[in-house]
């Protein structure tokens, strides 16, 4: 009698067990290099194949992730979100969740440190910078000013700069001792920064305070915290990248991309995307994600010419890269 039904029983058990497991996402092959955008309006992740310059896959997520970072094994991707209790680890190749880090809510930014042994997460609930090893074990928490958002690592000085969004403060953390060593006054609503390690210049952008719109990049001395100069980059410069002695600045208020010499002179500019927040260099190309236009623009960094526009999910807010091993 049981013989008759064992097959159906097996199917039933399979269904039962599989329903317990997480939804599987399309696999991302190990050998492709991609730029992945975390799209916050429709809770998706779009993987753009950098070689083909085309959308490779899209993951539909179940939680409102706002950012991600790829761990040194190049397969595990850690998603975090301001409202989420955990940061979730997914395997790209398997397309499924493989673990969670108990972070609590308030994580707004994250960075894999240059030595690739740990991760710094920015917690706006606790107003702390939290250091984790790559296994997800929390090592240390360091007090920051309220609303920390942008973090910037100095490889040479082994320091971490933490910008407070609404407190006009910049904290400097020594990465070796993991202690706060310094604190500078900055301008209001600072966001986005770039460190020129040669000249010890810290370029900081921002949104502006209240009805005022930030029009300039503020250049501070990274040692003393003194404001050295301002460079106009209207409006709302919030993202910086450096390549070949040029700084690429993205101003989301006017949808402008500026190419500025390290000296501060404007080399080129272009109007791009709609409300762009994110920018990345990959495979010698410049990628700009438009938050309102829901696309990724691929540009030639030399002349800022648009090479291609790729549609991604709604509201690309963060972009992470996995490039081919060199």
């Amino acid at each position: 009698m049981f013989k008759k039904y064992w097959f159906f029983g097996l199917i039933l058990i399979t269904i039962l067990l599989s329903s317990c497991t997480e939804k599987r996402q399309p696999s991302i092959p190990e050998d492709i290099s991609f730029a992945a955008t975390v799209n916050i309006k429709d809770m998706t992740v779009s993987f753009v194949d950098l070689k083909k310059m085309a959308l490779a896959e899209e993951w539909k997520m179940e939680k409102p992730y706002t950012g991600a970072l790829i761990l040194p094994d190049r397969d595990a991707i850690l998603f975090y979100g301001n409202q989420l209790e955990t940061a979730d680890l997914y395997s790209l190749k398997e397309g499924k969740k493989i673990g969670s880090w108990e972070t609590g809510t308030g994580i707004v930014n994250g960075k894999l440190l240059a030595d690739k042994t740990g991760v710094a997460l920015v917690d706006q609930d606790l107003n702390k910078i939290r250091f984790f090893n790559i296994e997800g074990k929390e090592l240390k928490q360091i007090e920051a000013e309220s609303n920390p958002l942008t973090i910037l690592e100095s490889r040479k000085a082994k320091k971490l700069f933490v910008l407070s969004f609404n407190h006009e403060k910049l904290a400097v953390i020594d990465l070796q001792t993991k202690e706060k060593t310094d604190e500078f006054i900055t301008h209001p609503s600072a966001a986005g920064a770039w460190l020129n390690e040669e000249s010890n210049e810290l370029w900081i952008g921002g949104h502006g305070e209240g009805i005022e719109i930030e029009q300039d990049i503020h250049v501070y001395d990274s040692e003393t915290g003194d404001l050295k100069k301002t460079i106009p980059a209207p409006s709302m410069p919030i993202n910086f990248l450096e390549k070949d002695n040029h700084v690429y600045v993205l101003s989301h208020g006017s949808n402008m991309l500026y190419k500025i010499k390290e000296s501060g002179e404007l080399a080129a500019s272009v109007s791009i995307a709609a409300n762009p927040f994110e920018m990345a260099f990959a495979e010698g190309k410049l990628l700009v994600a438009g938050y309102d236009s829901n696309d990724v623009h691929i540009l030639d960094p030399e002349n800022l010419k648009s090479l291609k526009t790729i549609k991604v999910g709604e509201g690309p807010f963060k972009m992470v890269l996995r490039e081919r091993m060199k």
């Binding site: 709302m236 989301h252 208020g253 006017s254 709609a274 938050y291």
Partner: peptide, 28 residues
Amino acid sequence: NPRELSACLPFEIDYQTLIGKEEREELL
């Protein structure tokens, strides 16, 4: 003013913008 138009909204700026998130989406 992009600030008034909630362009910075994902950064959760402490500012009473003229239009909200849903309104911006509609306008877009």
